[in-house]
Deep mutational scan, measured.
Amino acid sequence: NLRWTSEAKTKLKNIPFFARSQAKARIEQLARQAEQDIVTPELVEQARLEFG
């Protein structure tokens, strides 16, 4: 299971509600691909840039 830093959680809250669950799934996918067990603000930002 993935842990989220408080900064990453804050960044996730800045994503519009309607896109948040999809973004969260993508962020967690990116973390797993990078073999990380902690979601960082950088991963959230990477996903945000993908979504535009």
Rank of each mutant, 00 (worst) to 15 (best):
N1D: 10
N1T: 13
N1F: 13
N1M: 13
L2I: 11
L2V: 07
L2Y: 04
L2R: 02
R3L: 11
R3S: 08
R3C: 09
R3W: 08
W4L: 00
W4H: 00
T5M: 07
T5V: 03
T5L: 05
T5C: 04
T5E: 04
S6M: 11
S6C: 09
S6V: 10
S6E: 14
E7F: 04
E7H: 05
E7G: 11
E7V: 06
A8H: 00
K9V: 14
K9A: 10
T10M: 14
T10A: 14
K11Y: 11
K11D: 05
L12F: 15
L12V: 03
L12I: 05
N14C: 14
N14P: 01
N14E: 15
I15W: 13
P16W: 06
P16R: 04
P16L: 03
P16H: 06
P16D: 04
F17Q: 11
F17D: 08
F18L: 08
F18Y: 14
F18N: 07
F18T: 06
A19R: 13
A19N: 11
R20C: 06
R20K: 03
R20W: 05
S21F: 08
Q22V: 11
Q22N: 08
Q22F: 12
Q22P: 04
Q22I: 12
Q22S: 09
A23V: 15
A23I: 15
A23D: 01
K24Q: 06
K24L: 11
K24P: 01
K24S: 04
A25T: 09
A25S: 09
R26P: 01
R26H: 09
R26Q: 06
R26C: 08
I27C: 10
I27N: 00
I27V: 10
I27G: 02
E28I: 08
E28D: 03
E28F: 02
E28C: 03
Q29C: 07
Q29G: 06
Q29E: 12
Q29V: 08
L30K: 04
L30D: 01
A31P: 00
A31C: 07
A31M: 03
R32K: 08
Q33K: 10
Q33D: 12
A34P: 01
A34T: 11
E35A: 12
Q36E: 06
Q36D: 04
Q36V: 14
Q36W: 08
D37V: 11
D37M: 12
I38A: 05
V39Y: 00
V39C: 01
T40K: 03
T40E: 03
P41H: 07
P41S: 11
P41I: 13
E42N: 09
L43K: 02
L43I: 09
L43P: 00
V44E: 00
V44S: 01
V44R: 00
E45L: 07
Q46M: 13
Q46G: 03
A47E: 05
A47G: 06
A47D: 05
R48Y: 14
R48K: 09
L49Y: 09
L49M: 11
L49G: 06
L49H: 08
E50W: 09
E50M: 13
F51S: 05
F51E: 04
F51N: 05
F51I: 11
G52S: 14
